[in-house]
Design a protein around this nucleic acid. Structure first.
Lengths: 146, 146
DNA sequence: TCCAATCGTTAGTGTCACTAACAACGTAGG
DNA sequence: CCTACGTTGTTAGTGACACTAACGATTGGA
């Protein structure tokens, strides 16, 4: 009993659990929204990274997006099939591919960006705008340090 | 370009993405810690719920832990094998099972609780204690509303 | 030149979230 | 009292992710 009282209610305030639950919910919403246009979040991550940093090798994209190199292969395949990116061998280093975004890819990115903006608002709806900034700041600090 | 500038840097501050990344990291840490004693987070969720609310049916446990009833079956099987819980038919409603925690289960819960306390500190290490409370509060608000 | 590291790729593992279907059982309406 | 419907536990299966291992090709450094 003495042990129980210290544990009771812990479950509902356990930070790692809250993080998991909130992320699961957010991910579901994101996948619903992106699924509507045949995309998933990795597509956005890759396109947004190409937009920000320009053409890159798959290894570089893997680093920046945190998608494992092995999983990135399929993502690039999917984006290539839909002509959103192009994959060509790097003449400077024949181990590498150069992945670059097409005009269609840039247009698609704009669409995904608009969809994701809606989802952010939707997911963060229970919070004030101050609290949203706080949350973003705290999560960014966690992600940065680990 | 005009579109690009609005999108650039968005990826690193996108709340749903930060949530995903932080949760993935936290989950990995939790699974490492619990895996050391042959447990996973669902074990903790079930045991903690039994501790707080007492014996319950699987449907009730499913509601409280947010584990799908189909997945809960395996969790209860695992906990039963290790004698941490007992599953017996409910005489009052023969569709139901009554799941109750054993003394060994209570002891195991104490162990998991100590492990998880360490993990929380570890994961939240980059934040001040004020920020930790803030984060917990904000995440709890999100989870509660959805 | 030889060794180690890197790159893209394939294959496979385990966990989770989630759906569908089923038999057994309970409940409420007519 | 039946009948229709809902609930419970269970099995099976799907798909997304995170992650590991191994491989051939290529590159860079000692």
């Amino acid at each position: 009993m003495s042990e129980s009282t210290s544990e009771a209610r812990r479950l509902r305030t356990l930070p790692t659990r809250l993080l998991s639950l909130a992320a699961t919910y957010a991910d579901r919403r994101v996948n619903e929204a992106l699924g509507g246009v045949g995309a998933r979040k990795w597509h956005y991550a890759v396109l947004a990274t190409l937009d920000e940093f320009g053409s890159a090798s798959q290894a570089e994209l893997s680093d920046r997006t945190r998608i494992y190199r092995s999983d990135l292969v399929a993502v690039i395949n999917e984006l290539t099939e839909r002509r959103f990116v192009e994959r060509s061998p790097d003449p400077a280093d024949r181990r590498r591919n150069v992945v670059s975004m097409t005009a269609a890819g840039r247009h698609h990115l704009g669409q995904l960006d608009r969809l994701l903006t809606e989802v952010q608002d939707d997911v963060l709806a229970p919070l004030t705008s101050q609290d949203r900034e706080q949350l973003t700041r705290l999560l960014a600090a966690l992600v940065r340090e680990h």
